[in-house]
Design a protein around this nucleic acid. Structure first.
Lengths: 192, 192
DNA sequence: GTCTATAGTGCGATAGAC
DNA sequence: GTCTATCGCACTATAGAC
């Protein structure tokens, strides 16, 4: 139990401190130096861990992409594009267990209040859609159909996420997502 | 014909100069001062016209929103959500006549090369989707179905836009958009 | 770790149009 | 006199370069 030069988990502590400050003071009124100072580090160190002030709220993307790719790889050969997307969506649900709902809600509150953060979130979602579309194309789905299926998947995910974090909502992410996918199918089936 | 204190159309001249510089030097290597100087203005004046360096590439959004709202208002009462969306999409096609294809292509080349610009574009698209969704809700479409229909509309628009500016493409924006909407319907109809 | 360029803001001054 | 477009200057924070 000697003096350690630096506590481990700097990245995680920075993320936690950022969320707290973004909530208490607001995102724009919080400087990178504020966040670093809150955990005993320097501004320079903050930017070593995160490319910019927004990125501190958006990590873990790689894990989602990996889960998506595994789910798509496991889908039966010759499955319909939207069925493959549905498999990927089910795989994502594992990342949103009940225990995470409070954290997700806090995080979304911050993002909803700041256009700059919304931009970053949209870019991340677009990145997920691109990954899905590329995987579908690799499985033989035609170019634009792959994009349409992938974007539809992201839309279903986003709408389901919004419902999942709604106040008073009790159902699991998976159940909600299934319902939303059903709504999408009903909606498209109802057009002339 | 005396010396005027300032030439009219500052905004438009700044937009044109920005596109030229973003292409010749790259977006990141172009400063706001560069753009302003190119049209005989100061950096401070640039920021009076545009909230930030990205925004100079994204104006005219209001016109699109207005056209969308008019199209949705004109749609027959009780129409299916996706049919109303299709009306809105048709109205948008008027903004993309053949003459504009070269300009659109140049602009998209710049955006595609810069994540910061992609973020802004995604935010603008999300704004369009929100407008559509709100209008659908006002016409009695249920909350999540309205969002799903609106987002699907934006996806169709984006995919169609990408095809329209593709090298060698000759068809009208409207024709391409109709085709993409058909692909979307076929894709969703093919799921289990 | 320090140094620096750039983005973006706030405020006061100027000068013509109405 | 008021309104609008512009300039000029000082300032902070971000982010990248050294």
């Amino acid at each position: 139990m000697g003096m350690v030069r630096w506590e481990p988990g700097a990245r995680e502590r920075l993320q936690a401190a950022a969320m707290d400050l973004y909530i208490s003071r607001g995102y724009e009124k919080t400087t990178a130096a504020d966040i670093a100072q809150a955990v005993g580090l320097t501004e320079r160190t903050f930017f070593r861990h995160f490319a910019d002030k927004r990125e501190v709220l958006f990590s873990g993307q790689e894990l989602l992409e990996q889960a998506i790719l595994e789910a798509l790889a496991a889908a039966p050969q010759g499955a319909a594009p939207l069925d493959m997307v549905a498999s990927a969506l089910s795989a994502l649900a594992a990342f949103f267990p009940v225990e995470r709902r409070v954290h997700s809600r806090r995080r979304q509150t911050i993002i909803s209040a700041n256009p700059a953060l919304q931009e970053r979130e949209l870019l991340k979602m677009a990145g997920l859609a691109a990954v899905v579309a590329a995987a579908l194309r690799a499985r033989g789905v035609s170019g634009s159909t792959a994009t349409l299926a992938a974007e539809s998947g992201v839309t279903v995910f986003s709408v389901a996420f919004g419902k999942w974090i709604a106040e008073g909502e009790e159902r699991s992410f998976l159940d909600i997502q299934r319902e939303v996918l059903g709504e999408l199918l009903a909606m498209t089936a109802g057009a002339a």
